[in-house]
Computed example of a mutant assay.
Amino acid sequence: MNILAFIPARGGSKGIPGKNLYQVAGNPLLFYTIDLAKKIDKNVIPFLSTDDNEIKAYGRSLGLIDDYLRPKELASDSSATIDAVMHALEWFQKSGEVEFDTILLLQPTSPIRILTEVQSAIHRFKESKMESLVSVTLMREHPFECIKSVEDSWSFLEKPNKKVTGRQGYTGNYYFLDGSFYLATVEFLKNNKAFVVEGKTHLFESKLRYSIDIDELEDMEIAECILERKLKI
């Protein structure tokens, strides 16, 4: 199984200008994703999808030496990642260098990952002959405490079958898609035009307590605190 570790890193960013090269705990944000991708397995090929020459140059400095640049029309705020993935696969097909049957999506905006978890997920994916697998984390805000508001009324997202007096009585397994990784076969992506499909995608529970998907500067500051702590361990 040849796996393309697809790392999307376009140049434009409204929330944090230059986000992918923003310095976090001593390194550009992009460093943490590329560094992990290179360590996963010899059959996992790191691939940087960017429209930005500065980001491309940084990728080259870390050993990613292909000549690919993402077209500008696939690098706008409204561009879908799946379209960028498909374009990259067509590029590889035309180059005739290597064929991939599986895509591992690693977003630079989720720099806090556990390498052994990614490796374990790939092993499970192979052994169970899955088509789609996504990383999830237990919800910190339990649905018994989450509220949906509609105009002047509101309701809890979920309600217990019986009265509970503390969190120890909260039941059910509730997760959120933490953005750490998405894994799918090329065939699955072609058929569904998505990495995650309800009823088809399997879940991989991460043991991370805090998973960050960076969108605002405050997210970057939180990620820096966690990464600095990891580097000291």
Rank of each mutant, 00 (worst) to 15 (best):
S110V: 05
A57T: 09
L189K: 06
T81Y: 05
A223C: 06
K162L: 14
S155V: 15
T165H: 13
R113G: 04
F156K: 15
F176Y: 15
K232I: 09
L231K: 13
M130N: 11
S78T: 10
E187F: 04
R70I: 13
S120C: 10
P160F: 08
K148E: 12
F100M: 04
S61T: 12
R209H: 13
A80E: 15
L48H: 00
T116I: 07
K230V: 11
N191R: 14
S78E: 15
K207W: 03
I55V: 09
D35Y: 02
K162E: 15
L183I: 07
L208M: 13
D35F: 03
P17W: 04
L104G: 00
E127W: 08
N161E: 14
K193M: 07
Y170D: 05
F181E: 01
L105M: 13
F144M: 02
A75F: 02
N43T: 07
D215S: 11
N27Y: 09
E97Q: 14
S180L: 07
P46K: 01
N161H: 14
P71L: 06
E216H: 12
I222A: 05
R229V: 14
G12L: 08
A84G: 11
E145G: 09
S13D: 13
Q119N: 09
R209P: 08
I40Q: 00
W154P: 09
F100L: 05
E90C: 07
L227F: 06
K42P: 06
E97H: 11
Y58K: 00
F100R: 01
G63E: 10
E73A: 07
L157T: 08
A88V: 09
V164A: 07
N173G: 10
L208I: 08
H202I: 07
D77T: 13
V136N: 02
K200C: 06
N43G: 06
D51Q: 04
T50Q: 01
I55P: 00
L74V: 08
E54R: 05
G12C: 07
S13F: 01
I55C: 01
G166C: 11
E224N: 08
D219P: 01
K72N: 09
L177C: 11
Y58I: 08
S49T: 11
